[in-house]
Design a protein around this nucleic acid. Sequence first.
DNA 1: CGACAAACTGTACAGTTGAATAATTATTAT
DNA 2: ATAATAATTATTCAACTGTACAGTTTGTCG
Lengths: 212, 212
Amino acid sequence: MSGSFRRAPDFERRSDMIEATLDCIADLGIEATTVRAVAARAGISNGLIRHHFESKSNLIMAAYRHTIELMIRPALDVVALPDIPPHERMVKFVTACLGGSVAEPRLLSVWATFISHVRLSPRLAQEHRDGYLTFRRATEQIIDEILTADGRRLPTGELERLGIVVNALIDGLWLEGCLMEDFDEDRLIDLCLRAIESLLDIKLPDIAEIGT
Amino acid sequence: MSGSFRRAPDFERRSDMIEATLDCIADLGIEATTVRAVAARAGISNGLIRHHFESKSNLIMAAYRHTIELMIRPALDVVALPDIPPHERMVKFVTACLGGSVAEPRLLSVWATFISHVRLSPRLAQEHRDGYLTFRRATEQIIDEILTADGRRLPTGELERLGIVVNALIDGLWLEGCLMEDFDEDRLIDLCLRAIESLLDIKLPDIAEIGT
DNA sequence: CGACAAACTGTACAGTTGAATAATTATTAT
DNA sequence: ATAATAATTATTCAACTGTACAGTTTGTCG
């Protein structure tokens, strides 16, 4: 009666389970994301989950870490690009934040699920805080580069202020874009860039002028 | 063995249950928000919930409608204020969006829980969409009043664009403010107002200059 | 080959879930 | 007072939950 199975490398199995977990959260909601539902979606038996993750909550936490990674990785990659004009970097940064896989409603569902639990789990709260601050510092860094290139200097505290504001703008537009599917992705990015031009009093290059 | 009880008016009982539901969602998470947990928090027996709400999902939906109301009511009240200078209205509007009970982390937890389910329930999605559009139109209206008072006219589509952007800014700052408790509420409001000044190229009155 | 470690399955268990229902109680109308 | 009404409780039920664990299968190393 016992079907045959395949022994997968540890990392691969864990990845599969994490993916299946995110699938369940997005498609069924966290309240229906049971060990059995995840196992079924990953094509494994339920017992295997506790073999790789000591408990269900460990699996959920691992899934959250993976989600943060999915969300900020594209943007952080832009920050790490070497030898690129600062204004152009900002355009790519915004594009990475509001476009591609980051902008999918699926991801928003998962993100919202975790955000709703930040108050309940100190571990989750810390994980979120780290991600948020990393992101904000990245934003500040790009802003600083741009203003320096333009030969401008900011009063103390102004850079932080602009970082917070630009960050909020990006977050807000990301939310709206994910929730209202009729928003065109390119339009959203253009909207964001023009707003940033106003906020920082700068001129950014057109998206068309920039290569991939 | 049966304890004595009080017969409450229908509306009062329903309100109690809805409040208890929001308490549970915020303090325990939606996955632990069971009929029994809600009943215990409302100080009633579990059977009573199905007597007032036909099913658990009806209760949850009612709780969501109440949450939307909690979130946008203060801001909509500002929009409805008669005989108030447009610039001042904007200041009050932002204050209503980012301050008071709206800015409490509890509310964010509940909001995030519902947002995470928008993809799963067309009813929920419609409810959200209505609330969002109402909110954005309110924002647009105030912006329009301000620019008109300043004797400026916008090209077609620009008002919508500014509405989306200002809305996103408010949403993003609300998020950050709720999640990072060390953000001072007044500072957040000031930050938002200064950003709106840049975005709309206007001058807003100081908060100090305005009465309650 | 053969044996050994561990990845993997399937089932069992105690506790919990939403829902249904019978029994009880407070309130209102008469 | 008393009967009628419906709000409320308490219990029951089948289905499901996370976890534990005994047993099966697989790949690897000598």
